[in-house]
Amino acid sequence: MSDRAGTANTPMRAHGGADHHESFLVYRKFKWLKIAALLSLVCFIAYLVHQPKDIPNGGTWLGYTLGGTGAALIVWLTWFGYRKRAYSSGAGRVQAWLSAHVYLGLALVVVATLHSGFRFAWNIHTFTYCLVLIVVASGIFGVFTYARYPSLMTANRRGLTTAQMMANIGAIDAELRTAASSLGDKLAALVVKATQETKVGGGVWEQLRGRPRYCGTDEAARELQTVLRQDLGAEEHEARKLMVLLTRKSQMLAQMRRDIQYKAMMDIWLYVHVPLAIALVVALATHVFAVFFY
């Protein structure tokens, strides 16, 4: 599952020919938007026209129809997860699927809401409805990240790959050490801290926040600021050189951490969307079972 994260933005950013650049959102002149809007409209009008002999609820003939439509949509939309992983007919096909997935997912909110007849309570039925809302909301956030983060990432990377950024930081570390070799214990300790106690990425929260709980480089730079206010005598010149190197490293780290943060933001919604979609299928099955059991 994890390796998919790297290709998650592929359909959005580049597909088909190099010159042809059509988002899945506008796929075939909003074909799926139109289909989803039509479906929603038909359901909505049916709901308005329908005069149930009971108060509006999921148990009237329209209620069953809307429920069946919603259940079919949920199963189909979840199937997309498997379909996407197994595609072999090219990116264009996946783009069609993704376009349909997004717009029919939005239509599902209309269908499910009308199916509920606006009757909510603390039960499995409303719980299933809430899962629909959360899964669709996380999907909307996913679309938002696809629209926002790829361009931010490109701008932030300035043509560098992750390996290159790593190598650049390593090179500064080497420079720092050379510069510190002849310096006093205090400055040397700062350089050790900056080189030994620095990392990028980290846990979920650290990646999403874009900075680690503790960064040796930032800490060393802060301490060096304090040291520089004192009279360093002969070491002053070298210490200033250290400051320049540390600042440069900090900037590179910030760039790399931002890159990791963007990537995490583009991925995190899937960690809600996919598991809750699976949970939704289970809740849906339970909901249907409970309704027909009684």
Binding site: M1, S2, D3, A5, T162, M166, K199, V200, G201, G202, G203, V204, Q207, I260, K263, A264, D267, I268, Y271
Partner: peptide, 9 residues
């Protein structure tokens, strides 16, 4: 460095 959510818990 751990990069990518896939490398977290």
């Amino acid at each position: 460095s751990r990069i990518g959510l896939a490398n977290t818990w």
